[in-house]
Structure formats: structure tokens, C-alpha cells
């Protein structure tokens, strides 16, 4: 089970939880299962997110592995200037 951290008011989308445990193998798994388990976050996921996995910001790489001890943070989509 991976440990997924939820931030501040994002928690409203996850029944108020600061962290959730989820059985996910990779980023694609995560992005598929999150809105299934927590429909409130679907809008945010669809608008586009970046996910930090073990300190690295991952934008789209579905097959980026998530391990049981991975640090996973869901973030707004990172852009640049």
C-alpha cells in the first residue's frame, strides 16, 4: 500500500483525510483509482495534476513506479515561463 499525502484544502476532496493508503503500482494506477475512490477529486485530476513521487515531479509518465515506501504528493500541474 502506498502512502498518498493530501494537502490543505485538497483534503476536502478526500473526505478530510490528510493521507490515504492505496494499492497502486504506478502513476497511471494512481490517477485511475483516485477518482474512483474519491469522486470529489475527479475535477482536479481532470484539470491536470503533477505528482511528486519520491521528491521528483512527474507530469505524465504513467508507468513511473510507485513503491510501498514511496512518498507520493498530488500537486497542481507544474508549468513554466
Amino acid at each position: 500500500m502506498a502512502h498518498i499525502q493530501i494537502f490543505g484544502s485538497l483534503r476536502d476532496l478526500f473526505d478530510g483525510q490528510a493521507a490515504i493508503e492505496m494499492d497502486v503500482r504506478n502513476l497511471r494506477d494512481l490517477l485511475t483509482k483516485l477518482p474512483q475512490a474519491y469522486p470529489d477529486c475527479a475535477e482536479e485530476i481532470e484539470e491536470g495534476v503533477s505528482v511528486s513521487i519520491d521528491g521528483k515531479i512527474i507530469n505524465d509518465d504513467w508507468f513511473r513506479p510507485i513503491h510501498a515506501d514511496s512518498e507520493v504528493v498530488v500537486l497542481p500541474r507544474i508549468v513554466g515561463g
Partner: peptide
């Protein structure tokens, strides 16, 4: 206006996010 925008503002405040621990 997105769902999580706090009360007390006009509808020009359209998006809200927060971070921290």
C-alpha cells in the same frame, strides 16, 4: 467558481488551493 473557494468573496474568486503541513 470552483467548489472549494471559501465564502465571503465575490464570484470573481474562481479557484482556491492550499498547501502546507
Amino acid at each position: 467558481v470552483s467548489k472549494r473557494v471559501p465564502e465571503g468573496f465575490s464570484d470573481n474568486v474562481v479557484r482556491y488551493t492550499s498547501f502546507g503541513h
